[in-house]
């Protein structure tokens, strides 16, 4: 085992320090060190998007980022998108449209969709489908997910 490294980040608006081994992925750190288990492991190689987080404004697969690479970064995880008392419009629309079944992919989809709406508040259906193609859902066939995102657009 190698020495642990001290990493300083800002996660969901709060300063967070942690220690991790150089080989630990950001996803492992979030889940196992910081108890932020909203990011899910579906594949651990960047194909399913269930672990997606926003890192300095960029959407990333947290399984493909090392924990040490987060040093000095601002991170938004699903836990920072909204809360039960103050749901993000995407979260509210996912509920209204029944855009989840088992729900394991849902945090990744909501984080990804937030990253899209942050840069393009009014995407077309094609743009939504293109952007979300990095997130796999096996339950819904995507219909209700795409509708929920379209309905969460500004002016929708």
């Amino acid at each position: 085992m190698s020495k642990k490294v001290h990493v300083q980040t800002n996660i969901n608006g709060e300063s967070v320090d942690f220690l991790c081994e150089p080989r630990n992925s950001l996803l492992e750190v979030l889940r196992d060190e910081l108890d932020l288990t909203g990011a899910k492991e579906g594949c651990n190689n960047g194909n399913c998007g269930a672990c997606n987080v926003i890192m300095d404004g960029r959407l990333v697969n947290s399984c493909c980022v090392l924990g040490v690479e987060a040093d000095g970064c601002e991170l938004t995880t699903i836990e920072g998108v909204g809360s039960a008392a103050n749901l993000h419009p995407l979260q509210q629309k996912f509920l209204e449209h029944a855009a989840l079944q088992c729900g394991i992919c849902t945090p990744g989809f909501i984080v990804s969709a937030k990253a899209l709406l942050d840069r393009n508040p009014n995407p077309s259906e094609d743009e939504v489908r293109y952007w979300l193609a990095g997130n796999l859902c096996r339950c819904t066939g995507y219909d209700k997910i795409v509708r929920a995102v379209l309905d969460a657009r500004n002016g929708a």
């Binding site: 889940r31 909203g38 699903i78 836990e79 989840l100 849902t106 945090p107």
Partner: peptide, 22 residues
């Protein structure tokens, strides 16, 4: 079409799936 009972936990990342247990 009511909103499902476990919905809020699942859209906020709070729902505990098998691998989430510590």
């Amino acid at each position: 079409r009511p909103i499902r009972h476990d919905g809020v936990d699942k859209v906020t990342g709070r729902a505990i799936y098998g691998a989430d247990i510590q």
